Simulated scan of single mutants.
Amino acid sequence: MTEEVALAFSVSRNHAFLLVETSCALVTRLPNTLAALEQGDIDLFKASKVSRLTREVSDEVAALVDGFLAGRLAGRDPRAIGKSVSYAVQKFDPDGYRDRAVKKRALRHISLEHEDETMSKVSGSLPSEIAGSIYASISRAAQTRRARDKARTLDQHRADIFAERLLAEDGHGKPRAHIHVYVDLLTLTGAREDPATLAGYGPIPGWLVREIAADPGSTWSRLITDPTTGQILEAGPGTYRPPASLARLIKARDRQCTHPGCHRPAEFSEVDHITNWARDGITDHHNCHAACKIHNLLKEEPGWTAEPTGNGGTIITTPTGRTYTATPEPLHDPRPEPEDDTPPF
């Protein structure tokens, strides 16, 4: 079958294998995803995100994941869909996910790939929390250097620091960086196993969060959520009205740039007004959001507008008149209020 598909579509054997695998999964295990594809809500590439991330789970788990995704696929970019699939897989198959994670973490490695014009690429396959910490540490050091040395770009500073640290064989200790992990209290205590979020990566399982939290160097910050929506109401000590506390709230609530399709972590983004302050925009959690520098400036370009919808939500209008809605993802699934069984008196 694979060879025949490769000939029919003039693609490689590996590409044909992925087409066949995705098609079989959609027909036999993912009816809701198939329906979204048939309705034009997603394309085949987005559908392949669902099939690829569920290929190692049982039919029962695949059905639960597919049901979870019903109504959550339209209007989302491939990476956002991938994060939702990963969240659902961890939610419905925590033990299987952990077994697979243990095996993959045992395969950590680095590799060297030579390229053209005197350049080569060194890459590492590492546990996500370690890779994120490395990148955050190097980025902060690069920003500090960039403030003193404008002759090199920020990327050049990152690359130079990366090389310096790897070549410092007699170095002592290891640079530490503040990475952001967002976790439900019930998952942190082990009462539930809902996935948490590692900023810049996506969902991670509860057991990994508890390992990170148990590290003596970890720092905890309190986040208060609305149980009926999962949205964050307060972050850190005190109220959220002073600017510093407001910034903590927004970065914790948004967790990444809120522009559709952009996933730059909030700690590397800017907190700014949706309706510009100069246009009487209010400085509060409804009219402020996290946005990377590019998308923060985009709304000031001719023809672009952004309108707040509340709690960081935005309606973006492009120069061609198209509109797109962006809403921060809740920290956890909505939870119904417990029934009151107290007998009347």
Rank of each mutant, 00 (worst) to 15 (best):
I161F: 02
E38V: 14
N311C: 02
G230I: 03
V27K: 06
R279T: 13
D254F: 00
P302T: 05
K83F: 02
V271Q: 07
R55P: 09
T144V: 06
R76Y: 09
I315M: 08
R176D: 10
G206N: 02
T197W: 01
G171M: 02
R79K: 12
S125T: 15
K103P: 00
D99M: 11
K49R: 13
G281Y: 03
K251M: 00
F17T: 15
C288Q: 07
D95R: 07
G200H: 02
A159C: 02
V181F: 11
L297Q: 15
W304N: 10
D149S: 08
I138C: 00
Y135T: 13
V181T: 13
I179F: 06
R29A: 04
R165T: 13
D59V: 11
G313R: 04
D99L: 04
P260C: 04
L154C: 03
L64S: 14
D93K: 05
D340T: 08
I212T: 09
V85M: 05
E113K: 15
S48N: 06
E21V: 08
V65M: 02
I212R: 10
L198E: 01
S48L: 04
G230Q: 05
K91W: 12
A106P: 00
I282P: 14
D93T: 04
P195C: 06
P175M: 09
P243Q: 07
R105E: 11
Y240Q: 15
L26S: 01
E307W: 02
P242D: 03
G206A: 02
R146N: 06
T229M: 06
M119E: 10
E113V: 13
I134E: 08
T239S: 15
A177V: 05
L249D: 01
S133K: 13
A36Q: 03
A199V: 14
L107F: 10
G171I: 10
Y87K: 05
I161S: 02
S269G: 05
A106W: 11
D77R: 11
P216C: 00
G313C: 06
E21S: 15
L64I: 06
T318E: 15
T317H: 03
G75M: 00
K83P: 05
E193A: 09
L249E: 05
E3F: 04
Q256T: 12
H295W: 10
R146S: 11
V89T: 04
T118N: 12
Q39K: 10
I130S: 00
Q39R: 11
L188F: 01
L34H: 12
L154H: 11
R158S: 01
E339H: 10
V183G: 09
F162E: 14
E211Y: 10
D340A: 02
D99Y: 08
P302A: 02
G173P: 00
R241L: 07
I130K: 03
A163D: 15
S10Q: 12
I232Q: 01
M1H: 04
A306V: 07
P308D: 05
I138S: 03
E129F: 09
G173N: 01
L112H: 14
S111G: 08
L249Y: 12
D59R: 14
H157V: 13
G310C: 02
L69H: 11
